[in-house]
Nucleic acid binder design. Structure first.
Lengths: 146, 146
DNA sequence: AATGGATGGTTACGCCTGCAACCATCCGGA
DNA sequence: TCCGGATGGTTGCAGGCGTAACCATCCATT
């Protein structure tokens, strides 16, 4: 009976993630009209240079349909180019165009600025949060719901 | 350029929340075919006994349309009853029916079990996580995206 | 008593999502 | 060579979501 939703970990995690994430999403949505999957795809490609859709999905923990649609959206803006693999024609190698790399560079600046903002907002708590997230990552990520 | 999405706090928070939350949602979805807003509404009413939709929204950080839909769904299952306020007929007081309280009791058991599972999975990390979440809550919750 | 603004709650619309089914291609074994 | 299963990727569909517009009701002011 005396169960407090306020104290339930999944609930708290969700709310915190929502809040932290939306605050940043508001920045790039307003500027570039991008969705989160698009931003993540851009970030992954910007960092690694050349990946397949499957690799992006694995790296970013996104469902493959999400990746597929994000890739199409980025391609339509000419921020991304596809290249069919010569040896295995199912595979598409993805890479950013010059315009895509330019946008990526701008977004990295935004991201870094937001990281600093978070650091000052959270103070020492940020270290605890990072430690806790590491614990979740090693214990649970990848594990399918029982 | 060398920006690693893997290390970006909003991203990590989201992934952890998704993982922790989905794992539990799978339990009650499978058993009761409930959505998260419905579960949260049930939990809030089970704990407080009698609330209005607006109060539930404020308490659980849910958009009022979410609450509205969850209330209707729970009402259709006869787990919840509405009662129009005599003095102010805009207000609807909500409370669980006997059946609703029964389900709530079952779900509290599930939630507690999951809390224990998390505690063993995360080990000491759970304390760090809770501290980090507290920091986020005091620093950011309620604050609208700039 | 009348009115304009505030409040509780619902709903039409369009966007995003995951599931499942699908297409094309590859590969290993008969 | 042919076939069946596996893999990369796309899409139809149904459902959840937030925005904005909406209805009903209340209340303070006049």
């Amino acid at each position: 009976m005396d169960f407090d939703l306020e104290a339930f970990l999944p609930y708290r995690l969700n709310r915190a993630a929502e809040c932290v994430s939306l605050r940043f999403a508001a920045e790039y949505r307003g500027r570039y009209d991008m969705t989160r999957p698009e931003w993540r795809t851009l970030a992954a490609l910007g960092a690694k240079g050349r990946m397949t859709a499957t690799e992006i999905g694995a790296h970013s923990a996104m469902h493959k349909t999400k990746v597929s649609r994000a890739v199409r959206a980025l391609e339509e803006r000419r921020w991304l180019r596809r290249q069919v693999d010569e040896a295995d024609r199912r595979i598409e190698h993805l890479e950013l165009t010059a315009a895509g790399r330019r946008i990526h560079a701008e977004m990295v600046v935004l991201a870094r600025r937001y990281e600093e903002e978070l650091a000052t907002l959270l103070g020492d708590g940020i270290r605890a949060l990072e430690a806790g997230l590491s614990a979740v990552e090693t214990a649970m990520i990848g594990r399918r719901p029982a």
